[in-house]
Nucleic acid binder design. Structure first.
Length: 249
DNA sequence: AACTAGTGCAACCGCCTGCAT
DNA sequence: CATGCAGGCGGTTGCACTAGT
């Protein structure tokens, strides 16, 4: 429905010749995509396949930047994209995944068939953020101090998936150099252990039975995941046989 | 009917990472 | 090792639409 509305909207905009939302920039066109542009992009991707996005504008005859083409394809034109409201199951899964992964929308979307990372992100930013806010307001109205509530920010595991090349030192059994991780990132002893576990393929250690799993920092100390996360993780492992499979999927 | 505030979605922007040179 | 480029991601913005007054 919305797709139709959008198409109609784009057509109207074209006819009126005012192209609202198009910001005049140097060179490439910006703003809303027209139907003809969509067709050109769709044909191009069907012909040449996904990828090589820097070639797409030239191949398709589009005056768009590579990023714009890629985004349009991934978020709108790609087949099997599911439109419309999120089902209860999807929302439930999204909440659980967000608790597990944080704002890693692409990973979350990867577990929601037909949903794009942009969809998930938009849904979360509009619906869920509001729920969180109202929840906090309720707590305030009940004169409950924030610190005394059970509503706490998620403790998010933030692994950094990386493709390992043959040249990678980690592949050869060397520990990761923390200085390579990122400019502002520091690698704690815990995360280094985590990597060791991952790279050594010691998934048998991650059994999610409250006896062996990733520690979660809380009030300066570390405690294990709760049962809820156990169940989530178990679901994933039913599909991805190893933790690495899940993360790098 | 006119105005305003809120909402939802598409698209842009800046940054990060991997790879090739 | 430095640099440039392409792909990818998350945060943010812009704007059409809707509901309320």
């Amino acid at each position: 429905m919305y797709q139709v509305m959008t198409s109609v909207k784009a057509a109207c905009v074209m006819m009126e010749g005012r192209l609202s939302g198009v910001r005049k920039g140097a060179g490439v066109r910006k703003g809303a995509w027209s139907q003809s542009e969509d067709e050109l992009l769709r044909e191009c991707v069907q012909l040449y396949g996904e990828g090589k996005w820097h070639l797409v504008p030239q191949r398709a005859g589009l005056n768009r930047c590579r990023k714009s083409c890629r985004l349009r394809w991934l978020n709108y034109l790609k087949p099997n994209i599911k439109r419309g409201d999120f089902s209860e199951d999807e929302v439930d899964l999204m909440i659980r995944l967000h608790k597990l992964l944080g704002n890693r929308w692409s990973l979350i979307a990867g577990r929601l068939p037909g949903r794009t990372s942009n969809d998930v992100k938009n849904y979360w930013n509009t619906n869920m953020r509001r729920k969180v806010q109202s929840h906090k307001e309720n707590n305030n109205n009940n004169n409950v101090k924030e610190s005394e509530t059970t509503w706490k920010p998620h403790q998010v595991i933030k692994p950094v998936p990386r493709a390992l090349t043959k040249a990678s030192s980690m592949v050869h059994g060397k520990s990761m150099n923390s200085s390579k991780v990122g400019v502002n990132e520091t690698v704690s002893a815990e995360s280094e252990n985590w990597w060791e576990t991952l790279l050594d393929d010691k998934e048998e250690n991650i059994t999610f039975n409250n006896t062996t799993c990733f520690p979660v920092e809380k009030d300066g100390s570390f405690e294990l995941w709760d049962e809820e996360l156990d169940s989530i993780a178990s679901e994933f492992f039913a599909e991805a046989e190893t933790w690495s499979d899940f993360l790098l999927n």
